[in-house]
Design a protein around this nucleic acid. Structure first.
Length: 493
RNA sequence: GGUCGCGUGGCCGAGUGGCUUAGGCACUGGUCUGCAAAACCAGUUACAGCGGUUCGAAUCCGCUCGCGACCUCCA
């Protein structure tokens, strides 16, 4: 925490030094999914990226309250039907069954991606009272009006009086004023830019609650305003989400919070960029899409084989969170090789025995790379750059291990720090797990040691036929034999 | 159409005025090896196009082309 963290703030459109409201503590709210269908891979990317941001803050020593909501009401389709209600109608389920089913699926996938769970995961339906109270406050402050049991946010009035509308998304008020748009079922609005904060429930609408304006349900943007206020306070540190939420969702959130309490909700707004596939937007409608499961199993025309979730996670982290990520089979394949190299190296660094007694250029270079990697993470969470430092460190580590570099040129204290930082970076910050650990186990390793001994015996007798037969046979099982200076090792290909 | 952003070598992907040979993958050569693989070393391929600012631009400005996001479905 004594180190300076800089973050790119969407509000100011530049990097700023991060200063929490309360010393040593961070309140972070990230917009979670609307649980009306199976989780989209793009959602996974967003939440993995915020997972690394969360982990980095923890690693820096901050006490973080990480709140990520689940939207389970109020998010409407083009035709005005609630997303959840539609799912319930089609599948003949209770709305809450739909919500539970997809929330479970979402949690399962995020667990597979090794994303830490948030500290609080509030649901919109569990905070109807808070949302009604906020609507009342907005009306009281003059920024809401009721028509036929629905309450709308008076965007134009808010914009004119506060000048606060459009700051985040870059909208211009004049453009709003001239905007005309034919909206279905929303003709009660005074202006197209107005948005519902409470909606009257039609007789067939399944999800409904009593309110001062009759039976209805909360508007889509309202739950985030109400729940972030409840759990993090009227103003908190970080608000995040995908940049497709910038407008209207986040802009309207700001308007609601300012409209209700007169204060801006978050000091720093962080937005992640979108996932592309083969250079084009991942979209269900034109078939340019792949689900997490298909990516893991390889059951898709877009990939040549299945990939372990940790490889996908590593692939995701090799791009910066504010950049688009282009998912290609070739890209993941190269990430897979890089990932395995990194993890193999992490394993071998622990067995290095430094023999140096004074600082050398090599020693300094290692320490410098470690510092640079840390600075990269402090510079707006630059995971790809930090990862590149560790790849450079891998060259040093492998060189020391194989004898191209001299263990007498590094201090034991340097190796100690290298081991500690490397492990913390890979496991705690990037949140990567070693794939082969789960695949191997002690028994297989024991068997492999035996096989390696037998092969070594054959080699000593120059029985190349036998030794190569063992090697080729193992290779066919995707097990690689590595003859090094210090003996033979094995790993999965 | 409006607003904003992007365009880096065979692929992925950092870098925003002057040494980053970024890094990964691929490829080529070398060291090592019984031969390989792995590892290490070295090397090739670059900044969409055109013009401008500057002593100097991938980096700033303008135009053109291409791509993407948002403009009440989106992570």
């Amino acid at each position: 925490m004594d180190k300076k963290l800089s973050v790119y703030n969407s509000l100011s459109r530049k990097k700023e030094e991060f200063k929490p409201i309360h010393e040593g503590r961070v309140g972070m709210y990230v917009c979670g999914p609307t649980v009306y269908s199976d989780v989209h891979l793009g959602n996974c990317l967003t939440f993995v990226r915020f997972d690394v941001i969360y982990r980095t803050l923890l690693h820096l020593g901050y006490k973080v309250r990480y709140v990520r909501n689940i939207t389970d009401v109020g998010h409407l389709l083009d035709d005005g039907e609630d997303r959840i209600s539609k799912g319930a109608r089609i599948d003949q389920l209770e709305p809450m069954e739909v919500v539970q089913k997809y929330a479970n699926g979402f949690h399962d996938i995020m667990d597979i991606f090794n994303a830490l769970r948030p500290n609080i995961e509030p649901r919109a339906t569990g905070h109807i009272m808070e949302q009604i109270a906020m609507v009342e406050q907005i009306i009281k402050n003059g920024y809401g009006y009721e028509v036929n049991g629905s309450v709308y946010f008076d965007t134009i009035k808010f914009a004119e009086q506060t000048g606060k509308y459009g700051e985040l998304s870059g909208r211009v008020i004049e453009d709003l004023l001239v905007e005309t748009r034919d909206l279905k079922n929303q003709s009660d609005k005074k202006h197209p830019a107005d948005f519902a904060i409470w909606m009257n429930a039609s007789p067939e609408h399944l999800m409904r609650w009593p309110s001062p304006w009759g039976e209805g349900f909360p508007g889509w943007h309202l739950e985030c305003s109400a729940m972030s206020t409840k759990y993090l306070g009227k103003t908190f540190d970080i608000h995040g989400g995908g940049n497709d939420l910038k407008f209207p969702h986040h802009e309207n959130e700001v308007a609601q919070n300012v409209g209700a309490c007169g204060c801006a909700p978050a000091n720093y707004w962080l937005h992640t960029n979108m996932l592309l596939m083969n250079g084009r937007k991942m979209s269900k409608s034109d078939g340019n899409t792949i689900s997490p499961e298909e990516l893991f199993t390889g059951d898709s025309p877009h990939v040549s084989k299945g990939y372990h979730p940790m490889i996908i996670r590593f692939f995701m982290l090799q791009s910066h969170y504010r950049s688009e990520l282009n998912l290609t089979d070739e890209g993941i394949l190269s990430a897979e090789k890089g990932y395995k190299r990194l993890m193999e190296c992490l394993k071998s660094v622990g067995s290095l025995e430094a023999k140096g007694s004074k600082a050398t250029p090599l020693d300094e270079e290692i320490l410098s790379l470690l510092n640079q990697a840390e600075e990269d993470m402090l510079d707006d969470f630059n995971t790809p750059k930090a990862i590149s430092r560790y790849f450079e460190l891998c060259n040093k580590i492998n060189g020391l291990k194989e004898g191209q570099l001299n263990l007498g040129d590094v201090l034991p204290s340097t190796i100690e720090k290298l081991v500690k930082d490397f492990n913390a970076f890979v496991h705690n910050v990037l949140g990567l797990k070693d794939v082969s650990d789960s695949e191997s186990g002690a028994i297989l390793d024991g068997v492999m040691q035996l096989v390696i001994q037998l092969r070594q015996g054959a080699r000593e007798e120059k029985n190349w036929a036998a030794s190569d037969k063992i090697r080729d046979g193992l290779a066919a099982l995707d097990i690689q034999i590595k003859d090094g200076k210090e003996g033979t090792e094995w790993s999965f290909k």
